[in-house]
Design a protein around this nucleic acid. Structure first.
Length: 189
DNA sequence: GCAAGGATATCG
DNA sequence: GATATCCTTGCA
């Protein structure tokens, strides 16, 4: 379990940075369905990224979960991180794999899910989780309302990360939302 | 600074 | 069918 501290918003087909920019395809089909479902895709051949479908039925919008502050199950997160780091790399020598495992074992808790690829890895997610209803209280993967935080977190916006290819204005719109100063946030605050 | 993965959308 | 590209990460 973790608290979401960094997300990015992706709009419909007009958003040139969104997977919906080519219209409905086999990969992004769930984005065009009802809100509240998971959309997990593979990027750069080795990292899965978790999104929450947000638009109403027929409108392909989604929220990319970029970072979580781990709250519980951190041992399990380390196990899944190591598993992913050592199985998704074909050209790793045994020495390199052992070094990667040691590095993950030593990571501070705040860094276990600090980035879209490693957040999904920490939760053991892959593309097979696409379509799961995140609003169903009985779902193994679900969203829950956080208790009121004290002090109240300050949320700031920045441009989205890794979307320069989309060009203006999509690459500069302030559609990344981060909890200011949180140790689990990836990239610039 | 850059290579490592494989799925994907697009082009011949 | 072939290929450039990708909502990333951790190394040199």
């Amino acid at each position: 379990m973790g608290r979401i501290v960094e997300v990015e918003a992706y709009l419909g087909p007009e958003d040139r940075a969104s997977h919906a920019r080519f219209g409905e395809t086999a990969r992004n089909r769930v984005m065009f369905g009802p809100a509240g479902r998971a959309y997990v895709y593979l990027v750069y051949g080795m990292y899965d990224c978790l999104n929450v479908v947000t638009g109403p039925d027929g409108v392909a919008a989604a929220l990319l979960i970029r970072a979580l502050s781990p709250l519980d199950g951190t041992d399990s997160m380390r196990v899944d991180r190591v598993l992913r780091a050592t199985t998704r790399r074909r050209s790793l020598t045994p020495d390199q794999a052992a070094a990667a495992a040691r590095r993950i074992e030593r990571l501070p808790v705040a860094r276990l899910a600090s980035g879209p690829g490693i957040a999904a890895a920490a939760f053991g997610l892959d593309t097979g989780w696409t379509g799961v209803d995140l609003c169903d209280p009985s779902s193994p993967l679900r969203l829950e309302r956080a208790p009121a935080a004290e002090p109240v977190p300050i949320v700031v916006t920045t441009a989205r990360i890794g979307v320069d290819y989309a060009g203006e204005p999509w690459s500069t719109e302030p559609w990344r939302f981060v909890e200011l100063g949180h140790a689990s946030v990836s990239g610039p605050a």
